[in-house]
């Protein structure tokens, strides 16, 4: 089967700033794909190139096997949900949703019927006669979704689709988007800076940094096997241990990552389990988060380790006091070697 999207060595520079540098990736049909990265990492530029709003300086974009690198946006079988939703303020909600049909010359009655279908799909069936400004943020988001889906595109692009919503609504919409994508079987490509969103929704995630893909993997691999210090820190905020400390603590490699929740705090004078790596340090601070507590421990001059302790049922012991000396241990398998 042909990939839904294939990017080959895309490069895009804005003056002296290289926004995207030799980016290649392949997205399978029906995949829920996330472009994850901090702002300025190139993820949005990448999405804009796929949509056709911008042209790459070099490289090729294939949609369903066809080279669309220089095809204008209106001739690409791709639709976009914009970050600001970009709903037409002078049209009703139903007219907004039906716009893609209108410009293709579909008859008015058919347009109205299908717009109603799409609005029902996003549970806004009764809102067709309203104007966009009369809707809440979450409702506008769903209108934008319905509008982008009405042409049955092969690929739906979503640019920070949940960025403008509050936390509760965002969590609801995450589940709704995921469900919608599974029902429709359309390839979703979405841009986000929120690693939690990318991990929970996507089948695969491309992590961007400085215009390059740092790592492209499933959420689970990304979380458990980060390949670079950037990915380790950005996805789930792992501890990155480098230099002499990495050697002293038994590696692996010249740098490794260890998740805060995989570090044990040894109680009292108990010995570490056999084969565990062990070290000790002073508690810099400790914060209680409910499900877990996080403390930061100064292991040596260069290294501060974050350590998470799960809240156990019936636990009564207080967190170690700031300034206290604690002993830490972890299984060597949990330390993930990093590329330079």
């Amino acid at each position: 089967m042909l990939p839904a999207i294939e990017l080959r060595a895309l490069r895009r520079a804005f003056g002296p700033i290289v926004a995207l540098d030799s980016v290649s990736l392949t997205i399978a049909p029906g995949e829920f794909f996330a472009l994850l990265g901090p702002s300025g990492s190139g993820k949005t530029t990448c999405l804009r190139l796929i949509a056709g709003f911008d042209q790459p300086d070099s490289g090729t974009i294939l949609l369903d096997g066809d080279d669309v690198t220089s095809t204008p946006p209106f001739a690409r079988d791709v639709n976009t949900v914009f970050q600001d939703y970009a709903l037409f303020p002078h049209m009703t909600v139903a007219d907004n949703v039906a716009y893609g049909l209108r410009v293709r010359g579909v008859a008015a009655a058919e347009r109205a019927r299908r717009a109603r279908e799409m609005l029902d799909l996003v549970r806004l069936g009764e809102f067709g006669t309203r104007r966009p400004h009369e809707l809440s943020g979450g409702q506008r988001q769903r209108v934008a979704l319905a509008r982008a889906l009405i042409n049955h595109p092969k690929v739906l692009l979503l640019d920070e689709p949940l960025g403008a919503l509050d936390l509760k609504l965002r969590e609801e919409m995450q589940a709704e988007l995921k469900g919608l994508q599974q029902r429709l079987g359309i390839t979703f490509v979405f841009v986000t800076h929120d690693q939690d969103e990318a991990l929970s929704m996507a089948d695969r995630v491309a992590v961007f940094s400085n215009g390059r893909i740092e790592q492209l993997d499933t959420p689970r691999e990304l979380y458990n096997r980060p390949q670079t210090a950037f990915v380790a820190r950005f996805v789930g905020s792992a501890n990155v241990v480098q230099g002499e400390t990495a050697q002293r603590l038994g590696g692996p490699g010249r740098a490794f990552a260890i998740r805060p929740e995989l570090i044990d705090v040894l109680p009292g004078t108990a010995a570490a389990p056999a084969g565990h790596v062990q070290c000790s340090g002073e508690v810099l601070d400790a914060l209680y988060h409910g499900a877990s507590s996080r403390m930061r421990v100064q292991v040596d001059a260069q290294t501060i380790l974050a350590v998470d302790q799960a809240e156990l049922r019936g636990a009564t012991s207080a967190m170690p006091a700031v300034g206290a000396l604690v002993r830490l241990a972890w299984h060597p398998d949990h330390a993930v070697p990093l590329r330079d």
Binding site: P72, P73, T80, A86, F88
Partner: peptide, 22 residues
Amino acid sequence: PQSLLQASSDLGASPAQTFRNV
């Protein structure tokens, strides 16, 4: 907003249609 023009184009409107409709 620029995004309205992009949205129109994205939904399949030719530049002339975008001009007339948006």
